[in-house]
Structures are given as C-alpha cells and as structure tokens.
Write a protein that binds this DNA or RNA. Structure first.
Lengths: 96, 96
DNA sequence: CTCCTATTTTGTTATTTCGCCAACTAACGA
DNA sequence: TCGTTAGTTGGCGAAATAACAAAATAGGAG
C-alpha cells in the first residue's frame, strides 16, 4: 500500500494513469504525450507496475499498458482507513 | 492537490492521520506515539497542514491537531479523476 | 543474418526528502 | 524575573528520487 501512495505522489505518474482511462496505450504512445525522454517514462512505468496500478501486455515489439482498476478499490479502502471512523467496534486489536 | 498526494506518500504522516481519527491530539501526544524526535514530527505536521489535511488550534502552550475531513472529499474526487471514466460526455475540452 | 524500431537498463547528476541536534520562541507558574 | 514546559525553526548529512544520455535487449522486416 505504501508503494501505491508513493506512486501516486508524482504528477507525471498521475497523468499517465489519467491518460490510461481512455483505454490501453503503448509505451511509445504514452511517451509522446510528455516532454520527457522515453527512458524517463519507462522508469515511471516501472513504478506504476510495481505498485500494481497498471498491467502490461507484450504484443510483438511494443508493450501495452492498461489501468488496473482492481487496485482502485484498495486505494479507496486505504483512504477510508485514514479518514473514516476508527474501528472501535471490532473485537480484536487492530495493531497488536 | 499535488501537495495532498505528496503528504500522503509518507507512512508516518498517514499514521498521524490515522491517529487523529480518534479525535484531536496535541503535538506532544502525537509525538509520543512515534520513535522520532519532536522536531521531526513538527516537520510532518507542517506538511500535513500545508496540504490542508489537518487543522490546528493553539490553546495556551499546546497546539491541537485535528483531521480536516473536508479534504477527504477532494482526495476522493481526485482519485475518481484518476481511475474513473474520462469525461467524454462533457461539452468543453478537458485540456485545451 | 542484418538492419530497424520499440523499450528497458545502466550510469551520472541535481534536487528533494527525512532524520537528528541545537537553538529559538511562547506561555505558564512560582 | 527565573525557570520549565511545549512547540517550531535552521543547519547538516544520508538516502531516495527524477531527469538525461548512452548502451543493451528483443522482435519483426527484408
């Protein structure tokens, strides 16, 4: 979960995710959208992949990136954990 | 919004927010919960305050910190912006 | 096999971040 | 006023981060 928040901390990476809302894109297509080199973008892709925010598919010589919407739910739950009510009604300790 | 995500990127700061779910705490009370110096914690408080994630109230010689739940909504909307559907149904361009 | 094209990896540099200690300010009580 | 307690600020070093250029890898096309 820490990796997810760290990944979301960078504006470029958030913009990448925003672009992927429209559907899958190749690494090159994404790279063209930013005033950064391909290698820099490739590093950002790696961070997003490590955080499981994107999924990749290798098709021939290109790599497709797409959003992993499953993790969206995890982030939401994480946020609820930050701002929601403390779980005082639970039996066990939340932090033993 | 960038400051908010940056603030959430640090585990200590997220833990501070989690602690504040239980109600307001003084800077000293919060500092005791972490194996860090007061000055370090003070720095984290400043980041959280700059991101508008907490509100402060000076009472005598102590400073009370409390959660700013208003920003929670902003973060949610920001997340929906990242993972939700692109706003293709809107009239204007989203990025002119 | 050889040459492109697409992408990742590696090495380097500049900037930022996080932690500590020491010094400082502010409010209170004796 | 003097001393104490609560908290913030400034300076510094270590580690993480983000950017680039150049080299390396992997897949087709010919």
């Amino acid at each position: 979960m820490n990796e997810v928040f760290k990944a979301l901390a960078d504006p470029t990476r958030r913009e990448i995710l925003r672009e992927l809302r429209g559907g899958e894109r190749t690494a090159g297509e994404l790279a063209e959208l930013f005033p950064l080199t391909k290698s820099t973008l490739s590093g950002h892709f790696a961070v997003l992949k490590a955080a499981d925010l994107v999924q990749t598919e290798k098709r021939g010589t290109t790599v497709l990136y797409r959003l992993n919407t499953t993790v969206f739910q995890d982030v939401l739950i994480g946020l609820l954990g930050l701002f929601g009510e403390p779980d005082t009604h639970l039996k066990g300790e939340s932090r033993p």
